[in-house]
Design a protein around this nucleic acid. Structure first.
Lengths: 252, 252
DNA sequence: ACCTTGGTTCCATTTTTTGCAACTTTCTGG
DNA sequence: CCAGAAAGTTGCAAAAAATGGAACCAAGGT
């Protein structure tokens, strides 16, 4: 295996669970001899991909990774604009917001916007949700045709919770609902006590799609609040969409 | 040179200026034969470090990089808390804010918090400033001793602007001022028309240091506003510091 | 002082990576 | 729609790495 793949594997270790790595952690997680782990981590540090925490022997991602990640947002007008729209809604309502993408059959948050309410959903970026078992995921799936969705989950689905659709057919029912209303609501499905509302947008030029998503403590919002959020999300999505549509008119 | 370094060099290309790369771009920027550039980019994509934009031949950082970057924030309570403090000030004042770190002799922004004023300083993360020639940099340098600073710039300094200190001695004068007041002010130094105010915080446990920084259009803030921002920054830094201090009492 | 655990270094062998040139694909202008 | 150019992709032998096993250091605990 090329060292690049090993390096990528190391970066993949960092996630919701794990924020720092030692040589031995790496040995366990990647199953490589520790001589290699030692050299790999050092090489990555020398390259700027990792940095050592203080003068300890623990590693975490380096600023290089940070800079590149920031550039990601920039590279995609879609993500950039979506992030802006969500940020606006997030500050207006005080609730936490996300922009997410579909990665294979999972949903990954791309940017997060922590809310300001004292009781808010703590930003849980890095955590991957199943596409079929989350409101955000279904918002994105609804952009596909039923056949495409069936193909994607040809191996069957494992519902993450009782409240999630239990079969492909149930998923498709929910998707039909999403397509009809334009929004995807999920009540305490992925996280107990947390409601979420998502709207998907597609960039007509690149085919890329993201979901705008607002999450809030179920106890904190009335039906009316939900309606407000829904409107804001739809408006936000419309703005993003309009901005992207305009762009295709401009010479590139 | 190891492929890891090449990969890092590629990631380094992504920044304020450049959000996507082609094979030829890479050839130019890294000065490598195009056969290598082609294979390098593909290998990085296969590893998840990059992704192709749609079905074009252009590359940008991949989600893997994104996830790792998110984990970075988490890995450092200092950065996490500092980001929170700056975010609060940023939303309160409407001005753009940063959290920055010293990387060798340069300052790199670690998180950004775009302001909400219609006239605001656009978030310019990814751009590196010289430590001696920026308010944020001097806030961080002020944590070092004069001797350490001299050692750091043993090769002499190149002032980035007329308004910046022109010699090490001038830098040290400014640092003394920063140490006295606790804040570092920079008037239109790094960017014309933009004032900035920074305060540094150090994590007593790890020795890591970051600067909280607020920037605003010089035309937009009165002397009084400046005072307000200064107070908020000092308070924010104090909170961060207190939170970190508490932590050392807790068993780890 | 001794043991344990985590980390680093040595070295011959194996595997990538490199650079060049030839080749294919994609654009561009006429 | 074609010719020519530019961008991108392979094939191959030489050069430069990564690998894994074992020996070796460092730190922490008893």
């Amino acid at each position: 295996m090329s060292i690049l793949n090993s390096a990528a594997a190391v970066l993949r270790c960092f996630g919701a669970e794990c924020t720092e790595l030692t040589v031995m952690d790496t040995v366990e997680k990647l199953g490589i001899p520790k001589s290699n782990a030692s050299r790999l981590l050092r090489a990555m540090r020398d390259a700027g991909l990792l940095e050592t925490i203080g003068k300890t022997k623990r590693f975490r991602p380096g600023v290089l990774v940070l800079d590149a990640a920031i550039s990601y947002r920039r590279s995609s007008s879609l993500v950039e604009r979506a992030a802006e729209a969500v940020a606006k809604i997030s500050t207006a309502t005080g609730h936490t917001g996300y922009v997410s993408k579909l990665i294979d059959t999972e949903v990954a948050a791309v940017t997060d916007h922590p809310g300001t309410h004292s009781l808010r959903v703590v930003s849980n970026i890095g955590r991957r949700l199943t596409a079929h078992g989350s409101g955000t995921g279904r918002a994105l799936l609804a952009l596909l045709s039923d056949d495409e969705v069936r193909a994607l989950f040809a191996d069957g689905i494992v519902p993450p919770s009782d409240l999630s659709p239990q079969s492909i057919d149930e998923v498709l029912e929910r998707l039909a609902e999403v397509r009809r209303t334009g929004v995807s609501f999920s009540a305490q499905e992925s996280t107990r006590g947390v409601d979420a509302l998502s709207v998907a947008v597609r960039d007509p030029e690149t085919g890329e799609a993201v979901a705008l998503c607002i999450v809030w403590p179920a106890a904190l919002a009335t039906e009316e609040d939900r309606k407000t959020i829904e409107t804001m999300l739809l408006d936000g999505a419309a703005e993003v969409s309009a901005a992207l549509g305009d762009r295709t008119l401009r010479k590139r």
